[in-house]
Design a protein around this nucleic acid. Structure first.
Lengths: 190, 190
DNA sequence: GGTTGCTATGCAACGAGTTGCATAGCAGGA
DNA sequence: TCCTGCTATGCAACTCGTTGCATAGCAACC
């Protein structure tokens, strides 16, 4: 598994507390790897036991202390070993696709509800895309003047943008297909 | 969770044994929901206990007997209930994206290995796309003359095709970015 | 005759991921 | 004053997913 490795990448990019990591996994890293704070704290403990990371206790004004974690040379070596191993095939779990095929076994009311749900889902993805584009303008104003780390972050973000655009186009296709199954009644000619 | 629901959709489309389901989850359904045969057999047992499905024992010439499962009205009702519930946000796990960002912490040799790995990965996706397109020509020769079930299967397949095309384009972007980090040495002018 | 490979089903153990809950200090608003 | 919400960390229980193994008959090949 590679939650460990995703955390190592994130800590090498910038040291962080478990809480900060959890927030990153809701945003930047979370675009391609999700994790909850419980998972993160558990894995951090294991990584510390393996000496992949070390903590520095930091007191804060008016806030609880936090442990700021950094990757050790051992951790970095473990990351490099993993980087050079073959990429595992992805486990796809696309619930919406199951529901779309399932819609053949519901009635027109159910399909109308699905249309509404797909519209909501589409709005979420539109907001995600807008967020990516804003982040791109903010973080990569001059794409030709990036170091290795920046260039790699940028190409991953471009992947997210391409994904969201593809999803939006497909959802339009889905909506047209669903609407076509139960066309609205036309007024009878008088 | 919805492995149960993916199985219900598959059984409503056509009854099948556990083994046949496992093969479907390596192919058509597997495009958007993966499952191993052990998972499937375990879930089938639970679904039978809940009366969502029933089995018919079928003897075969020269092959072991199999249990052919069908969805019951109870199972179909359970599917419809689930269909009308909100779509859960997807849990994204994109290992390659982690490795790409991690490549900033490896050396040129490591990045060269990653380029080779991305090329292999790209070839896999190219083969997947070719398989989808072949399947589309075979299963949907006349897209305008489909019933509801066929139209919905087709739009999901179009989603798979759009996804693979997007991935291929992005992988080309990734390869260009990686190669640009460690440009090959040019011959010194004599 | 032995090996490999396919159909067909299943158990057991383990590891990963989810959900609910708990603590605790401080800030801000009703 | 109480309630909500944010930072910050963690335990416990449960479910889901993965891996290894086992059985068993038949077919094809060397």
């Amino acid at each position: 598994m590679s939650l460990e490795h995703a955390i190592l990448v994130s800590l090498l990019e910038r040291p962080a507390s478990g809480y900060e990591l959890a927030r990153r996994f809701d945003r930047s890293i979370g675009r391609f790897w999700t994790a909850t704070h419980q998972q993160i704290y558990r894995v951090l403990k294991r990584m510390e036991a393996d000496a992949w990371i070390t903590a520095e206790e930091v007191g804060q004004d008016g806030l609880p202390d936090k442990k700021v974690w950094s990757a050790t040379p051992t951790g970095r070596a473990a990351l490099v070993t993993w980087l050079r191993a073959p990429v595992q095939p992805e486990a796809v779990r696309h619930e919406l696709a199951v529901k779309i095929r399932g819609a053949a076994f519901d009635d027109a009311d159910g399909r109308a509800a699905l249309v509404a749900e797909v519209e909501r889902y589409r709005a979420d993805h539109e907001a995600t895309l807008a967020g990516y584009l804003t982040g791109e303008r903010r973080d990569f104003p001059d794409p030709d003047a990036l170091d290795a780390q920046g260039a790699l972050q940028h190409v991953v973000l471009r992947g997210g943008i391409a994904y969201e655009r593809m999803v939006l186009a497909w959802l339009d296709d889905v909506l047209a297909t669903l609407r076509n199954l139960d066309p609205p009644n036309r007024k009878a000619t008088p």
